[in-house]
Design a protein around this nucleic acid. Structure first.
Length: 944
DNA sequence: TGCGTCACG
DNA sequence: GACGTACGTGACGCAC
């Protein structure tokens, strides 16, 4: 949630540090060094950290200090240049054995120093530097590239200079001219001709930098030179150019830096941040760098953390959150919370917030439904134990029958408070910290305040502890702060007699509300550095935090629902149900509650003595759809009628009736709420109402979707990923035949059937295809013979036979499953392709739970990667359709629904499709294409 | 409040 | 070799 008001521009100074060059230099400059406790090689990391510390020391105080900075790394040694020329950098020796494990640690180091850290698959650090330098230059800022790599010299000029880090020497246009004999803009031409033996750039044989510069200066540029090479007098040079023109052109493409690299970050994101003492010291301490740790601790005026007595567990294996809370925080009991009742006190707090640069914020309202909630008060916290509550619209507690609406005395007026706080809440230089910020942001948005930038402790916990426990504030406070907050129930009561927050006394409200802000701030202080050590900063920053704004907007917009359609359907369902109920009672010979599984079971299995009665653990007969279907198939009418009745009952109570209650009186639309932390895999959950389970599979239920409509003059557009999880499986498990089938756009289930049963595609029957489809799904879920047998209703031995044959045909799948379970057992978590961690605390349990945990571990990376991909698309989309009359309304796991003005439907569809299909890039290049299907209509039923 | 049931991907 | 099982959700009504 960066803000354009802090945009990078004139007067800004960007430092770009060539991280990879730093590492190699550090490695070669220092004797081998390994960590005492476990022998991990850390010499290069140590040198790297020393350099960064020195760098910060030199630049922090200088008059020419950078306003923005980033450390750039090579993602891997393979880049797009290898596709241009496969021998590029081919004679580079592989990095030494003891250096390789240090690469990820240097990333951690640069993050621990709170420096923006960038690397992109397929691109060299130099390309990223070129791109950022171009952006900064275009924005009117200055750039210093900290590197001595001559390949970067082409970027010098127009406000861009280089700094040789060892000699601390500035390299400007004149220095470039001295080295290459041409200005920076012709450096690539010279390099293309001269080649480079280190990087294996071929160039023209027999031509070095001197000659190359001579030729370029004479002919102007490389293309002209190659066109007119025949005019060259020296026969050797002439031949070298004429014979190798193509190779020279390739060479130019190799040395020419790509300044259009796709970036996840903007210049604003690179704003210089002071290192967080706790995070930095934590990292240095983990690395066991005694001297540097002490030096840094001295600088911050804190004592260095004690080195662990026992060998330190590597940070990456540590279970986050198991560490005890820091001891130095003030006691909650001692905390004195302030109630802000006058302007001077409020202004004083605002000044303190501005000095701090961050503040924990919490809103108290009359409802959990943000669309109907009224703001009652705001709490703030700037330091553990230092919190305040601003009551604004508390009302007399008793109230009369007509709802006494007298405001309690001694409160600042809402409008006055908001006009003072709005600049703070919208100030790009002040971080607003919340627990479940989507809620508060929506409350403020209702009042015309757009809160940014934000941090969210709930989302931090989700990134850190997904799969371990819930992320509600009470649970987090109890677990990580060892403190049980005031229960809201103790203030509001529960059930019918519950009151709203505006009826709570101001003293009680202050204790409760200020404490919430206090807890939030303490959690933030605890979690923020742990994001780095647990290596989930990227997940939090790119997949969680940006979603808050996007979802808040979707929820506030809502989708139009036609009440009349629902109401008519409800009536029709009621009539049919009444008829069925009479029939059922008739068949049973007595009247009973059809909706009671208990009573139904007794009728079926006791009174009518039908076979197949099985009691569950509660002693009641099971009467699920599968059991009733079996009975119906045997020719029994009663269970068949009950099935029909149940379907209607479900549709009526959950959809046609309940949905009407969710239509907002003012907007005429339904506003769901998405829970970002709702599913452990990274999927969203939709609540109040759940719009992710609107019927579609049955014809009857599908009609409910006709009630979801577009505004007049607009259309609903639905786009969904085709087979995304199977595609991800094909990629992750690296199954060539599956990947090839997806690339060829084949029917994947038919192809699986053909492979398994040896039936040629032309002779495929729907039945065989259906079975293969069930197997494909089963695989994603961690297949078992029992489960497949039940799903296909075939003997278990047959199902097991299918599975055996499947694994025989696709051995990679079995390998993936085994490897994933193994990974979970050693690490305690599994990961998606984007680094999201899903903890698997049950994976080592024995007994019945073991199968569950294994299947969940197998499924999580697949389902989670798909969830990450659509999150990435959703985060990008608002900017992409910003200029069009279109709004994103809903997400249903692999589907997005938009409301679009009729004449923009085509443009929007194609733009959204492009974003969705490319959503994995550039972080991840899948071996299979992602395909998005689109539909348009006046209703959701038509659009799908 | 827990369970059974069933709607979705 | 037995355990009991397809993965991930939320909402409803019943029974306690």
């Amino acid at each position: 949630m960066s803000d354009s008001e802090t945009g990078f521009g004139k007067g800004c100074h960007l430092h770009l540090i060539d991280g990879s060059a730093y590492i190699f230099r550090a490695y070669h400059a220092l004797p081998p060094l390994s960590r005492k406790s476990d022998g991990l090689p850390v010499g290069a990391v140590a040198g790297f950290c020393n350099m960064l510390w020195r760098y910060l020391g030199e630049n922090g105080s200088s008059a020419d200090a950078p306003t923005h900075a980033a450390v750039i790394f090579d993602y891997s040694s393979k880049t797009f240049r290898n596709e241009i020329y496969d021998l590029y950098k081919a004679n580079r020796p592989a990095p030494p054995e003891d250096l390789r494990p240090q690469f990820p640690l240097t990333r951690d180091a640069s993050r621990a120093f709170n420096l923006a850290t960038i690397e992109i698959e397929d691109f060299e650090a130099d390309d990223i530097i070129a791109t950022l330098a171009r952006q900064a230059r275009e924005a009117g800022g200055r750039v210093t590239i900290i590197s001595s790599d001559k390949d970067l010299m082409q970027l010098v000029g127009g406000g861009v200079e280089m700094l040789e880090p060892m000699k601390n020497k500035v390299i400007g246009v004149e220095d470039v001219r001295e080295k290459f004999g041409v200005g920076p803009e012709r450096v690539v031409d010279v390099q293309a001709l001269a080649g480079d033996s280190v990087d294996n750039v071929p160039g023209a044989p027999g031509i070095g930098i001197k000659t190359a510069a001579l030729l370029i200066n004479e002919y102007g540029d490389l293309e002209t030179l190659l066109d007119r090479a025949g005019e060259i007098k020296q026969p050797k040079r002439r031949a070298a150019l004429l014979d190798n023109a193509e190779l020279i052109r390739i060479s130019k493409r190799l040395v020419q830096l790509d300044d259009q690299t796709p970036l996840e970050v903007t210049l604003e994101d690179l704003e210089v941040r002071a290192p967080d003492a706790q995070a930095l010291l934590g990292f240095l301490n983990d690395m066991e760098f005694r001297t540097l740790t002490r030096r840094v601790a001295d600088h911050f005026g804190t004592t260095p953390p004690a080195l662990p007595a026992t060998p330190a567990a590597p940070a990456r294996n540590a279970v986050p959150g198991e560490d005890p809370a820091p001891l130095e925080q003030p006691d909650f009991a001692a905390a004195e919370y302030v109630c802000i009742r006058d302007l001077d006190t409020l202004k004083d707090w605002i000044t303190r917030i501005e000095d701090r640069g961050y503040v924990a914020v919490d809103t108290e309202t009359t409802s959990l439904d943000e669309m109907r909630a009224e703001l009652v008060g705001i709490s703030l916290c700037i330091d553990a134990g230092t919190a305040a509550y601003i009551p604004m619209t508390h009302r007399a507690g008793g109230g009369d029958l007509f709802g006494a609406t007298e405001l309690v005395e001694g409160q600042l007026p809402l409008n006055q408070v908001l006009s003072l706080l709005k600049p703070v809440l919208e100030d790009a230089a002040i971080l607003k910290i919340g627990q479940n910020m989507k809620y508060d942001a929506k409350i403020f948005a209702n009042l015309g305040i757009s809160v940014a930038p934000i941090d969210d402790t709930m989302l931090m916990s989700y990134a850190l502890h997904g799969g371990l426990h819930g992320h509600g504030m009470d649970a987090l406070s109890d677990r990580y702060l060892n403190h049980q907050p005031v229960a809201i129930k103790s203030l509001l009561g529960s059930g019918k007699s519950a009151i709203t927050f505006d009826r709570v006394g101001i003293d009680d409200a202050t204790r409760y509300a200020a404490e919430d802000a206090d807890i939030t701030l303490r959690l933030w202080e605890l979690f923020k550095p742990r994001l780095h050590t647990a290596q989930v900063t990227r997940v939090y920053e790119t997949l969680e935090r940006p979603l808050v704004r996007v979802l808040a907007q979707m929820e506030r917009h809502g989708i139009k629902v036609d009440r009349d359609v629902l109401s008519r359907m409800s009536n029709a369902f009621a009539q049919k149900m009444a008829g069925l109920e009479a029939e059922i009672h008739e068949l049973a010979g007595e009247s009973f509650n059809v909706g009671s599984p208990k009573q139904l079971g007794e009728i079926l299995f006791d009174k009518m003595s039908l076979a197949g009665g099985k009691k569950g653990k509660t002693g009641a007969y099971a009467t699920g759809a599968d059991i009733l279907e079996d009975l119906a198939a045997e020719g029994h009418d009663l269970p068949a009628r009950v099935l029909d009745w149940r379907q209607l009952s479900k549709l009526k109570s959950t959809y046609t009736d309940a949905l009407q209650d969710h239509i907002h009186p003012d907007t005429g639309r339904v506003h769901t709420s998405y829970v970002i932390t709702g599913a452990v895999t990274g999927r969203l959950a939709s609540t109040d109402p759940n719009l992710q389970n609107i019927p579609i599979r049955s014809e009857e239920g599908r009609r409910i979707r006709t009630a979801f409509v577009a505004e007049k003059g607009k259309k609903l557009v639905a786009l969904d990923y085709s087979q995304i999880e199977l595609r991800i499986l094909a990629h992750i498990a690296d199954i060539d035949s599956l990947k090839a089938a997806f690339r060829a756009g084949q029917d994947i289930h038919a192809m699986t059937a053909s492979e398994m049963f040896g039936v040629p595609l032309e002779e495929m029957t729907p039945e065989i295809r259906r079975q293969a489809k069930a197997i494909n799904f089963g695989v994603i879920y961690g297949i078992s013979g029992f489960g497949l047998a039940r799903n296909l209703r075939i003997p278990r031995a047959d199902a097991q036979g299918f599975i055996d044959r499947y694994f025989e045909r696709f051995p990679g799948i079995r390998a993936y499953m085994d490897a994933t379970v193994e990974f979970a057992k050693t690490h305690g978590h599994v990961e998606t392709l984007f680094g999201r961690r899903i903890h698997t605390p049950e994976i080592n349990t024995k007994g019945p739970g073991a199968g569950f945990a294994k299947r969940a571990a197998i499924n999580a990376p697949i389902q989670g990667t798909a969830a990450d991909i659509i999150r990435r698309a959703m985060i990008r989309l608002p900017q992409v359709i910003e200029d069009l009359p279109a709004k994103m309304l809903l997400q249903v796991h692999d589907e997005l629904v938009f409301e679009v003005a009729e004449d923009a439907v085509e443009t929007v569809t194609e733009r959204v499709r492009a974003v969705m299909e490319a959503a994995a890039e550039p972080v991840l290049r899948l071996d299979v294409p992602l395909v998005v299907d689109a539909g348009v209509g006046d209703t959701w039923a038509e659009a799908h």
